[in-house]
Write a protein that binds this DNA or RNA. Structure first.
Lengths: 344, 344
DNA sequence: TTGTACGCGTTATCAA
DNA sequence: TTGATAACGCGTACAA
């Protein structure tokens, strides 16, 4: 136990509060608050005394009390479909790293691609009174929308800019990305193109890519895209399953656009094993540009997005909104890039 | 600027509190509190009235006030080296999913393998008064230890059981895992073995695996393990770099143990490209059993751990500690499994 | 089964 | 530049 103990109040219940620090430093609690809050209205000498007291007593501010008194928290909520996807994990990391210097914590919700879970998780997270909520995609249930609207938090929707955001958005155009892939496949001479991805209801971003692909295919006057829907979340095994389904149901297919690199990579490896020549016999295109995409043989043609950059940008937009410096952007479209390699 | 309302009658302020709900339902605030807290001491009829009021007013409890009044939070802090690693991401997901039903939020800190950052992040996260802190590994600075000790939070250390935990631990024996790999390599006839991983100071888990490997190699009376240290975090490119360094500095090497599958996978792909025959010319073993490990050719021999299970277990241990049901375990050793495939 | 009084640790306001 | 006081919204303890 400490040698130095507040004498006059028997209220020292073990936890060290600002009052303890104030007493130790011979100032008022308010002055301690100013020091902790880096207020400029403190004499240098006083500040040093208080900081010494903080060190000596190992004082750690209580954020709950701060939030309650100031009616504002230091928390941002991020709701993503799943942390299993390296893309979403990278986004979250971008958010955390950008917010850490500001002492803002990030709490995460996994919806597993379920709208019902999104609602429940949002409701739960709103109890923390976050200063901002970062969502995935532009498609949300009415309940989510009304919860958001009513709570008045800043909202940032990510991964999609093909629509109107609730509040702010940062991402890229999935439609254009899909269209770009379609044009590439058409121009390289593919005639019968397939798309493998999640269900349209669950993953509207993948759906947009599909629609973009369809547009390019239509413009090239090719047969309709053969679509294989798999349940989310998708893993490498789903890539093989998707490949199998395409080969079975549309055997003339000569190009597949997978909605994620995990699947495309697995498909390439499986084709190698089966002796299916890529891209001569079957062209393959992925999405996400995972690190291994450049390393497989043939290397994977894919679309590079910037998940970490997206997370960092979302965080910056939130900070800008909070500081009300006026330069808060409402919609930021990040570049995506078609990376042409050996597989298509 | 917000102005405080001196009157407590004028509850027309923006935020809806328990008092508003209480008034609407014709009960006291305390009864509302009981309903929100699922207390059994509320008449069914009253409960329904209150719940209707909550719905009607769209009341959302304020967690800061709850924490302050009850002197306990609903937050768990998880501190990991980086969210870029799928293993750590899986662990975090395990924690989140296990805690979500209990309405406990998870806040994440990324140390980037830096002890200094671990200290700073921990200090910052402790302001949220988490009910538990989940750390990575058993090696922590004195400051981290004293912060933890002083705050009195429950602590769970993960990913390593080769040592004494501060409080509780869940993980596996990295030393044994490394030893297992070493025995396999020796038994299959490898004579000159190399290890590629992070610096010993930064990643003590990888260091333990290295030491286990060395023990097996020593028992087999083989030449010392050639070690290549790379800076963390490690990516696929580091696998290729590690491969290059081994081939350059220890050209007689006939087996490499990579401290993570990301590197091992990249190395296999690179060997394929260069015409290095695996495992005849060079055996390769990874760590982590990532999904692609089974899909590359030759498939990757590796060690399977259970990151998600580890996260879930850590969460359960925390819950057990909180409920003080007495069955809180102090050290849980999860199984790891050597998965022998084609590469070694 | 329900209500009343009080305090949790901090910040905002205003006075000194 | 500093301090006194009053909230912030809720749970705990106890009374009814």
């Amino acid at each position: 136990m400490k040698t130095r103990k507040p004498q006059k109040e028997a209220k020292s219940s073990g936890t060290i509060t600002m009052l303890d620090v104030a007493e130790y430093a011979g100032v008022s609690a308010q002055t301690v608050s100013r020091v902790v809050g880096n207020s400029s209205l403190v004499a240098e000498k006083t500040r040093r005394r208080v900081e010494e007291a903080i060190q000596a007593l190992r004082y750690i501010p209580n954020d709950a009390a701060r939030s309650l008194a100031s009616a504002s928290s230091r928390v941002v909520a991020v709701i993503i479909p799943t942390l299993s996807s390296s893309a979403f994990a990278a986004e979250v990391k971008g958010v955390i790293d950008a917010l850490e210097p500001h002492k803002i914590s990030v709490i995460i919700g996994n919806t597993e691609y379920s709208q019902a879970r999104e609602e429940a998780i949002l409701q739960s997270l709103l109890e923390r009174r976050p200063i901002g909520v970062i969502l995935t995609g532009l498609q949300h249930s009415p309940k989510v929308r009304s919860l958001l609207q009513q709570s008045g938090v800043a909202v940032i929707e990510t991964w999609d800019t093909d629509g109107d955001p609730i509040d702010m958005a940062v991402g890229f155009s999935n439609f254009t990305a899909g269209y770009d892939v379609g044009k590439l496949l058409c121009e390289r001479g593919s005639k019968r193109i397939a798309f493998v991805g999640g269900g349209s209801a669950q993953d509207s971003r993948a759906q947009s890519r599909y629609l973009g692909l369809c547009k390019a295919v239509k413009e090239a006057k090719l047969p309709d895209v053969h679509r294989v829907e798999l349940s989310l979340p998708m893993s490498g095994n789903d890539g093989i399953r998707g490949l199998d389904e395409v080969l079975r149901d549309a055997p003339l297919t000569d190009a597949i656009f997978f909605s994620a690199d995990t699947m495309a990579l697995a498909a390439i490896l499986e084709c190698n094993r089966r002796g299916i020549r890529i891209p001569e016999q079957l062209a393959i295109c992925g999405f996400g540009d995972y690190e291994l995409a450049a390393m497989v043989t043939p290397s994977l043609t894919t679309v590079r997005t910037q998940p970490d950059e997206m997370g960092a940008t979302a965080a910056q937009m939130l900070l800008a909104r909070i500081s009300e410096s006026g330069n808060a952007k409402h919609k930021v479209v990040l570049a995506h890039q078609l990376v042409r390699r050996g597989s298509a």
